[in-house]
Amino acid sequence: MTAILALDLGTTTGWALSSNGEIRSGSVSFKDTPFDSKDSRFTKFSRWLANQKANFEIEEIVYESVMRHVGVRASHVYGAFMGVLQVFADKYEIPYEGVPVSTIKKSATGKGNASKEDMVKAMEAKGHKVKDDNEADALALLYWRIKNE
């Protein structure tokens, strides 16, 4: 099955996958536990990506390109997730593209500065039972990508 994978990167990563006209989505936590080695979240993310590749023929990856973070730690974590994603995509020769947050929000709601709640409502209006704003963002990104093929 060929697929497009859309990601809202972070310790809790939102994902949406379009495969043969079917859309799947969710969010997954890569939070470290007290039993993990320091920053194992990135290893967990790498394994998760490999599992997606094993189950789907991923032909493209799009991710939310965040240019401003509230804190330094959030910025570092995002950058590390993005690095893991890019190394993975390069290794398997999967094209990838970062899409600005405002572009995704405007496509989904008509407002480039839409709130998290607005994004969830927009994806629920499309018939999705959304777990959290991370999943909503990934779904909105996937819809943007499908619309702009």
Score class of each variant (00 low, 15 high):
56 F>H: 14
120 V>T: 04
48 W>Q: 00
60 E>H: 09
67 M>D: 13
52 Q>H: 12
140 A>E: 01
50 A>S: 15
94 I>D: 02
91 K>I: 09
31 K>Y: 11
109 T>W: 07
111 K>R: 13
107 S>V: 03
47 R>P: 03
75 S>L: 10
45 F>W: 11
141 L>P: 08
90 D>A: 07
56 F>W: 14
45 F>I: 07
113 N>A: 09
108 A>Q: 02
104 I>A: 00
74 A>T: 12
45 F>S: 01
2 T>L: 09
115 S>C: 04
64 E>V: 08
146 I>K: 07
83 G>C: 12
91 K>D: 08
30 F>N: 02
100 P>N: 06
4 I>P: 00
65 S>Y: 11
27 S>I: 05
31 K>F: 07
143 Y>E: 15
90 D>T: 03
38 K>I: 15
2 T>H: 07
83 G>H: 09
11 T>L: 09
106 K>R: 13
82 M>K: 15
30 F>E: 01
106 K>E: 14
6 A>H: 02
44 K>T: 03
14 G>A: 01
31 K>G: 13
83 G>I: 05
20 N>C: 04
147 K>G: 13
56 F>Q: 04
11 T>D: 10
35 F>R: 12
126 K>V: 06
94 I>K: 01
56 F>T: 02
78 Y>V: 04
94 I>C: 04
54 A>S: 13
12 T>Y: 04
123 M>D: 10
49 L>W: 03
17 L>S: 01
95 P>Y: 12
79 G>P: 06
43 T>N: 07
70 V>Q: 14
66 V>H: 03
73 R>A: 15
65 S>R: 10
146 I>V: 14
39 D>V: 07
69 H>D: 06
82 M>I: 05
86 Q>M: 15
43 T>Q: 10
110 G>F: 09
21 G>Q: 02
62 V>I: 14
92 Y>F: 15
16 A>K: 01
127 G>F: 13
22 E>I: 15
34 P>A: 10
136 A>N: 08
29 S>A: 11
21 G>V: 06
72 V>G: 05
142 L>N: 02
57 E>S: 12
138 A>Q: 09
59 E>S: 11
67 M>R: 15
133 D>K: 04
12 T>C: 09
92 Y>I: 01
147 K>M: 09
95 P>N: 05
88 F>I: 00
132 D>R: 04
124 E>T: 02
144 W>E: 09
63 Y>P: 00
149 E>H: 03
32 D>E: 15
94 I>A: 06
128 H>M: 06
18 S>C: 11
31 K>N: 12
139 L>N: 03
130 V>F: 05
70 V>T: 14
8 D>K: 04
44 K>P: 06
54 A>T: 06
99 V>Y: 03
93 E>T: 14
141 L>G: 01
144 W>L: 14
69 H>W: 13
77 V>N: 05
4 I>V: 13
143 Y>S: 06
23 I>T: 08
93 E>F: 09
69 H>Y: 08
148 N>Y: 10
82 M>C: 14
30 F>R: 00
58 I>W: 04
2 T>V: 06
100 P>G: 08
132 D>T: 08
73 R>V: 15
71 G>Q: 13
24 R>N: 11
